[in-house]
Simulated assay, not measured.
Amino acid sequence: MSYSIPALSDAILPKLQHKVDTKTKPLGALGLLENLAVQIGYIQQTLTPAINKPHMLVFAGDHGVANSGVSAYPQVVTQQMVLNFLAGGAAINVFCAQHGIALKIIDAGVNAELAEHPLLVNAKVAHGTNNYLEQAAMSVAQCEQALASGKVQVASVAAQGCNTIAFGEMGIGNTSAAALLMHVLTGVPLDECVGKGTGLDDEGVKNKLALLQKAANLHSLSAQNPMEALRCVGGLEIAMMVGAFLEAARLQMVIVVDGFIASAAALVAVHLCPLVLEYCIFSHCSDEHGHKHMINALGVTPLLQLGLRLGEGSGAAVAMPLLQSAVLFLNKMASFEAAGVSQAEGN
């Protein structure tokens, strides 16, 4: 598959920084919002960036390992939560409605047949993955189909005028897949990647770690082959997100990254094509144990730290107004010259 991502031109960066620095404020007074304004302008290669028709795509899929003791919840909760999304009752529905974010739910591999619904896209590759404690989670064909479908979903919303996109997920057991991918691709010890997920107690986390160590031992995985890692221990919703990250970067969209699982998908995409990272804004640092290590491995600074560990894209949705604030101050706030305000000496 092709991963041709445009390299961004650095020529615009000093112009963006000058525009930020000459607004009617002390240098750096808007903190991370200043960095955010520069990054969005850099992604869009313009001094007047805009957030147009933001979309949230929530990818859902089941994991064969879910019934092996890695989660506090049974596998059927994936289906139940997707129905909750479609009924408008989940956190992601509330936050998307609050902030004017269009929402789509993508069935990447839920272990159930879902009825047609205006919010639902049926992109099912399989009824969940295989149990990676016994065999590879996906076949080569399934993994490639999921990647290709993720690209299609992004291309579809981009064609509607969307230039800013975020990805959420739902899949019981997917913090385990994310932890394994993180371990393989970053080299961080597995015990630093594994957390409570949906609410395991200390004994549950210990059991989860033992099971994931078994999986890591079963599959010969390395950072040099991210596709094989994704195929062997990933999830259909994660693979679809990887394709979505690649396509969004190819289309030069602003990508708002959610928490632990979404960041794991971003990590795989960055290993496949490092330029993807330039298009990514990391919304928050999750309370899931391994996320801070993943953030450090990627070398990025998240916008928020709210102790979130829900997934669904909830952190990305909550952060979306910060992107609006960043572009609005860059475009609407007066400069010292325009306002007739004296600058600090030396500026």
Score class of each variant (00 low, 15 high):
S4E: 15
P6N: 09
L13D: 00
K15Q: 08
K19G: 00
K19V: 08
V20M: 10
K23C: 01
K23H: 05
L27H: 05
N35E: 09
V38G: 05
I40P: 04
Q45T: 11
I51L: 01
M56V: 04
V65A: 04
A66L: 11
Q75V: 11
Q80T: 03
N84M: 13
A87H: 11
G88D: 09
A90V: 15
V94Q: 09
Q98C: 06
L103Y: 10
D107F: 10
G109E: 01
V110M: 02
E113F: 09
L114F: 08
E116D: 15
V121N: 07
V121E: 11
A123S: 12
K124H: 07
A126M: 02
H127P: 01
L133E: 00
Q135C: 06
S139K: 03
S139G: 09
E144N: 10
Q145P: 01
S149R: 12
K151R: 14
A166Q: 12
I172K: 03
N174M: 08
T175L: 14
S176A: 15
L185E: 02
L185C: 01
P189G: 06
D191K: 03
E192A: 14
G195T: 07
G199T: 11
G199D: 06
G199P: 02
D202K: 05
D202R: 04
D202V: 04
L209I: 12
A210D: 09
L211I: 15
N217V: 05
S220I: 03
S220K: 02
A223Y: 03
N225H: 11
G234Y: 03
E237Q: 11
M240F: 13
F245T: 07
A248P: 10
A249E: 04
R250S: 15
L251S: 02
I255Y: 11
V257R: 03
C273H: 09
Y279I: 11
I281V: 15
S286V: 14
K292M: 00
K292A: 10
A297N: 08
V300T: 13
V300A: 07
T301N: 08
G307N: 08
A317L: 03
M320F: 13
L322K: 02
